[in-house]
Design a binder for these strands. Structure first.
Length: 426
RNA sequence: GUGGAUGUAGCUUAGUUGGUUAAAGCGCCGGUUUGUGGCACCGGAGACCGUGGGUUCGAGUCCCAUCUUCCACCCCA
């Protein structure tokens, strides 16, 4: 197929046969978030490039090599959002939400864009659901969003998933820890792999995450962040754990999880799935207390998480999780002749305005072909409509599941369908 | 960006040491006395064999390049 007729590398079409599944996931997410008081916010798909450079961090891979950046016709440098936190923070500051009643709780759903090499669970255009909470410094807030993340995963049927938490401290303790880590790894620099040698200067914490066996061996005895937390951060982390215990949420403390975005402070966490390949993080989040201020807003704490919708879908598919049944056509009218087709238009319009999914032949096919079609689309009932039925004002409704027929008055179709549907529920 | 695998009808595949009009199943459309689906039978449409070069009298089959998809690294959701 010619290149122009194919979707761009790393992008995905969601076809009618699976779109309802995505809608299910998305609506469950929004629904669950609202139970915790999070209301949806919708921010632009693109922002001034600076918004991401300043917030995501100019040393991160995302900013350095993964952004879709272009100059618009007005000479502005524009970037398609690689994530939704930065734009959300910009928005709540710009519109003064952070000057109103605190905490501000918002959630979002939308496409994100990163120029990466696609693989399982990783696309160039992907979709995130996430929440942000502004103005809450208490560990109860951290625990609350973790509970929300867990519940929303459970709501869509993801239960076999592990929660890992860590604290990377405030900038002060992180700085101290970074130095200690550097001292430790410098002693073993010869044994480290090439990428880790590079990481030593860029981001020593990443070495802890390396999958190279030799690096893993060395990292085993490396100092842990948790030993370098200041009193305030240690107490905060302790509080988070206590709240999680109180909520009955199971977790493991993993001092090696490090989020890749610069803005994180204190609590970081991930929900990890064992069912979707190498890109196993389904949800990632944490606290970012300095971000609002650095964006030019008031000095208030903030925290949030994001999950990748496509990864949620992968998890559900790979674990054969059930999806709710899709809506079916309530009544399909098979027509005979032009008169009947016109009458079907009239009847279907009325049924649809009463809330029924109704359809009839618009391809001018024969009766048999129409019945076959009704069967294929899974129509619950069919009705043959010809001149006889129009003249008598009566027709037979056929239940496609068991073949039973019932005679109905055309003028009472809507009521009859309602009765039949009620019966089939019991 | 690095590495490995892949690419034949809408889908899943067959295609012998390169040799005439590239097969099959599923799906799609139609038919089996013209007012009734699922089963069966019959018929039909549908493929520039990913793309571009090259070798050859001749290439889906061999060589090179390129792109896509998949998987892993890096990194992230």
């Amino acid at each position: 197929m010619a290149e122009i007729n194919r979707a761009v590398k790393g992008t995905n079409d969601i076809l009618p046969d699976s779109s309802a599944k995505y809608t299910f996931i998305e609506s469950k997410m929004l629904e669950t978030a609202s139970l915790y008081g999070f209301r949806e916010i919708r921010v632009p798909t693109f922002e001034h490039t600076e918004v991401f450079v300043k917030n995501v961090g100019d040393t991160t891979d995302i900013v350095q090599k993964e952004m879709y950046t272009f100059t618009d016709k007005g000479g502005r440098s524009i970037t398609l959002r690689p994530e939704l936190t930065a734009g959300t923070v910009r928005s709540v500051i710009e519109h003064g939400l952070v000057n109103g009643a605190l905490p501000v709780k918002v959630c979002y759903l939308g496409g994100c864009y990163r120029y990466e090499k696609p693989q399982a669970g990783r696309l160039r255009e992907f979709h995130q659901f996430g929440v942000e909470c502004f103005g809450a410094a208490s560990p109860a807030a951290d625990a609350e969003i973790i509970c929300l993340a867990k519940q929303s995963l459970n709501e869509i049927g993801i239960n076999d998933i592990s929660l890992e938490i860590n604290s990377i401290g405030c900038p002060d303790c992180r700085n101290e820890y970074g130095k200690a880590l550097k001292r430790y790894f410098e002693k073993n620099i010869d044994k480290l792999c090439d990428t880790c040698k590079d990481r030593l200067n860029r981001n020593p914490m990443r070495i802890l995450d390396c999958k190279n066996p030799e690096c893993k061996e060395i990292a085993k005895d490396a100092p842990t962040v948790l030993d370098y937390l200041c009193d305030d951060c240690a107490e905060h982390f302790d509080g988070v754990k206590k709240h999680l215990d109180a909520a009955g949420v199971k977790y493991t403390v993993n001092p090696r999880i490090v989020r890749g975005l610069d803005y994180y402070t204190k609590t970081v966490f991930e929900f990890v799935s064992g069912d979707i390949g190498a890109q196993s993080t389904v949800c990632g989040g944490g606290r970012y207390d300095g971000l609002v201020k650095s964006m030019g807003g008031p000095d208030i704490p903030a925290l949030g998480f994001a999950m990748g919708i496509e990864r949620l879908m992968l998890t559900l598919q790979n674990t054969n999780a059930p999806f709710p049944e899709e809506d079916k056509c309530d009544l399909y009218i098979a027509t005979l002749g032009d008169n009947a087709q016109k009458e079907a238009t009239k009847i279907c319009t009325a049924l649809r305005s009463d809330g029924y999914e109704a359809g009839f032949d618009i391809c001018n096919r024969g009766l048999k072909a129409q019945m076959k079609y009704a069967d294929k689309i899974g129509a619950l009932y069919t009705m043959v409509l010809g001149d006889n039925e129009i003249a008598s004002g009566e027709a037979k409704l056929k239940c496609m599941e068991n073949g039973e027929e019932t005679t109905v008055k055309l003028s009472e179709l809507s009521d009859t369908l309602f009765e039949l549907k009620c019966k089939s529920v019991f």
